[in-house]
């Protein structure tokens, strides 16, 4: 059995961290931005929009992330080129958008009825009621579950290795292929994922605590 070459393993995996973190951050921010309009479609009074929103969410959540990556990498090469990083980013963002849209939707529906009644009683129009009272609270309520979801996103980003993005998982696999011991190498990679997830978990808890005082929930 080979001895683990710590220097080599840490250097390679360290080089992968940037890809893993970058992918996760971009997909998360993209999902936070694009998820809101999808959620609006999901709660729209217009049936066609509701249908489109539901179709998007169900399709994007129902197909595994790795399948999206392969589909986009091989299928859309003509459109977005053959850069695996771009394909992986698009795929992860597509899926994150669907999950975060559902967080927004649930949050919007969770704003208590009393908030609607108070706003309506003050004479606000439907549009004012939604944008001034419901939406700000909905976004706030959705922050905590979305931050928790970011941990899942960090781990799902490992599928990018399948199409050749040189992230942590890719570096670990390459190391084992060049003779590093598998168990130890992947344990180190796993530990790095864990370390990266801890600050996200801490942030999610802080947001959850703060936001409870800022919504009527």
């Amino acid at each position: 059995m080979n001895q683990l070459d710590w220097g080599r393993v840490l250097e390679a995996i360290g080089a992968g961290i940037g890809y893993t973190v970058g992918l996760t951050v971009i997909a998360f921010l993209g999902g936070m931005i694009l998820g809101f309009p999808v959620a609006l479609m999901r709660v729209s009074r217009i049936r066609a929009l509701r249908w489109i929103g539901t179709a998007y969410v169900e399709i994007c959540r129902g197909v595994p992330v790795v399948a999206w990556m392969l589909l986009i990498f091989y299928g859309l090469a003509d459109l977005i080129g053959t850069d695996p990083l771009i394909a992986a980013t698009v795929a992860l963002t597509v899926v994150a958008t669907a999950y975060i849209a559902e967080n927004y939707r649930a949050a919007l529906l969770h704003v208590p009825l009393g908030q609607w009644e108070a706003a309506v009683s003050l004479g606000l129009t439907r549009r004012q009621l939604f944008w001034r009272v419901i939406a700000p609270q909905g976004v706030t309520i959705a922050l905590a579950p979305s931050a928790t979801y970011a941990i899942g996103l960090l781990k799902e980003s490992a599928f990018a290795a399948v199409i050749g993005v040189s992230d942590i998982a890719f570096q670990a696999r390459t190391l084992t292929q060049s003779g590093q011991p598998g168990l130890a190498t992947f344990a180190v990679a796993g530990a790095v994922y864990l370390l990266l997830s801890l600050p996200i978990a801490a942030a999610a808890r802080t947001i959850d605590r703060r936001m409870r005082t800022r919504s009527a929930m």
Binding site: E117, A118, S121, V133
Partner: peptide
Amino acid sequence: MVFQGFHLFPH
């Protein structure tokens, strides 16, 4: 209108 549950806007 004044409600039993106040319903102030928390944000």
